[in-house]
Amino acid sequence: LVRYRTISKIPQITLNFVDLKGDPFLASPTSDREIIAPKIKERTHNVTEKVTQVLSLGADVLPEYKLQAPRIHRWTILHYSPFKAVWDWLILLLVIYTAVFTPYSAAFLLKETEEGPPATECGYACQPLAVVDLIVDIMFIVDILINFRTTYVNANEEVVSHPGRIAVHYFKGWFLIDMVAAIPFDLLIFGSGSEELIGLLKTARLLRLVRVARKLDRYSEYGAAVLFLLMCTFALIAHWLACIWYAIGNMEQPHMDSRIGWLHNLGDQIGKPYNSSGLGGPSIKDKYVTALYFTFSSLTSVGFGNVSPNTNSEKIFSICVMLIGSLMYASIFGNVSAIIQRLYSGTARYHTQMLRVREFIRFHQIPNPLRQRLEEYFQHAWSYTNGIDMNAVLKGFPECLQADICLHLNRSLLQHCKPFRGATKGCLRALAMKFKTTHAPPGDTLVHAGDLLTALYFISRGSIEILRGDVVVAILGKNDIFGEPLNLYARPGKSNGDVRALTYCDLHKIHR
């Protein structure tokens, strides 16, 4: 019993810090008490220290592992850092350059016999395009090294910054494609005289377009951006097909006994025919423009016929181009109408809503002055909100995010209106959640004399007048207030005048 009563005193000691020596009952000389009392004092002292730490809000209350900052290894790049964003855009520009100039170089340097010394005699450094290609190869190699040090988000939505895990993730992902696209074939085969082989191998750079397509997928929600990307894709495919079309004609031209190829026909049409040795002929500019003209006309199913396939190889390629053109029509131009419709969806919704308003007016036989006010209010409210119901949009977000959005939407009023000066951010967040926005066209009466005042109004834009009878008592403008002081009276009061809008007004109100 003594032991039980001794232990039962522990909660009292913990909360009230009572010393055991003052209790005459606990001072009985028993061996059990002498053993338990020192333990009680020690526990009391420890609990006292913990309570003191909690009340003082000291940093040592938290466990040590929670006080440590997340460790980022040296030379690790955050995937959302500004440097990584700028670097990704730079790589994107280099990939676009590669997609345009690599097929052009591979096709127009394929057994090209233009006048001038061969590239091997001039030297590697004197070729501007080769120098640019070398810079692109170096940048792609540097990009691989950067990807080995860039964080990523795993399946659990955690940012991984450990170098080993980053390397394994990159090896399992895009490393092989990036490595093949970054191989400097110019340096590996330079001086061997195989410019045709170098041009063909350099087309491996186009593998990076797969990554670019995935990154550009984030802009699919913007109709104008999608339309622009589709047109660029169409032009890029036409450019690639033009390079292939020229390569076919250029390879067949020296081996044909009869002059029936499209390059021969082009030379005869523009007065620059090929001679018996295969030299001469149109310039590279004429060849490229004509090839691009043929691919565009074939892809769009126009086909004027002034550039036509004559050999079997050219006919087979033309059939493939027609098939590609039909697929592009289905996948690209078939979506253009939907994209344009999405661009004008706001206008369509406006006309639909206006039609419903006019049908309501016609069905209920609203008189002319009231009908005009109804239409003007709808037009003004639509121009202010673009038909978007803010309350319906915010309803799907958590309250903390709703408060931040409301604070942002009402920031101008909260910053410049005098009653809100000096208020804490928590108070402003709470008030912003209570605001209701209303609009009024010129001549609209917001409050009639004798109406119950259940709200306090803040003028965000425009001006109003307060009338008693036919006498203008006051004219209020931006950041002015009218209405009933909230919670100042037990019952809502009545208006002693009319409140009429002089201009288009936007008002925020808080109800009782």
Rank of each mutant, 00 (worst) to 15 (best):
Y65G: 05
Y65S: 08
K66M: 10
A69D: 14
P70V: 06
W75Y: 06
W75P: 01
W75G: 07
I77M: 06
Y80G: 07
P82R: 05
F83N: 05
W87P: 01
L90D: 01
I91S: 01
L93D: 01
L93G: 07
L94R: 01
L94C: 15
V95E: 01
V95M: 04
I96N: 01
Y104I: 01
S105G: 01
L109E: 01
E112V: 07
E114W: 01
E114N: 06
P117D: 04
P118Y: 01
Y124W: 05
L129G: 12
L129A: 09
A130I: 05
I135N: 01
V136P: 01
I138C: 03
M139P: 01
I141G: 07
L145S: 01
T150E: 01
E157F: 14
H162C: 11
V168A: 09
F171L: 13
W174R: 04
D178N: 01
D178E: 03
A181Y: 01
I183M: 04
I183S: 04
L187C: 08
L188I: 09
G191Y: 03
S192E: 11
S192A: 10
G193A: 06
E196Q: 15
E196M: 11
L201S: 01
K202F: 01
L207P: 12
R208D: 01
R211W: 01
R214V: 05
R218M: 09
R218L: 08
S220W: 12
S220L: 05
E221K: 08
E221C: 08
V226H: 03
T233H: 01
A235D: 01
A235S: 14
L236C: 01
H239N: 01
I244A: 05
N250Q: 13
N250D: 01
Q253C: 06
D257I: 11
L263Y: 03
N265L: 13
L266Y: 03
G267N: 01
Q269H: 01
I270H: 01
N275K: 04
S276R: 04
G278N: 03
G278L: 01
L279I: 07
G280P: 01
G280K: 01
P282L: 01
D286F: 01
V289A: 01
T295G: 01
L299F: 01
S301W: 01
N306M: 01
P309T: 01
N312C: 01
S313W: 04
E314V: 01
M322H: 01
A330W: 07
S331M: 10
G334Q: 08
G334M: 01
V336Q: 03
S337P: 01
A338Y: 09
I339R: 03
Q341F: 04
Q341A: 14
T347R: 10
T352I: 07
I366K: 01
L370I: 03
R373E: 03
Y377N: 13
Y377Q: 10
F378H: 10
Q379I: 15
T385G: 07
T385K: 03
N386Q: 14
I388F: 15
M390Q: 09
V393A: 05
F397L: 08
P398Y: 01
L401F: 04
I405A: 02
I405W: 02
C406L: 06
H408V: 03
N410V: 07
L414D: 01
Q415V: 08
H416E: 14
C417M: 13
A423P: 02
C427S: 05
L428W: 05
M433K: 09
F435A: 03
K436H: 07
T437I: 08
A440I: 13
L446M: 06
V447Y: 12
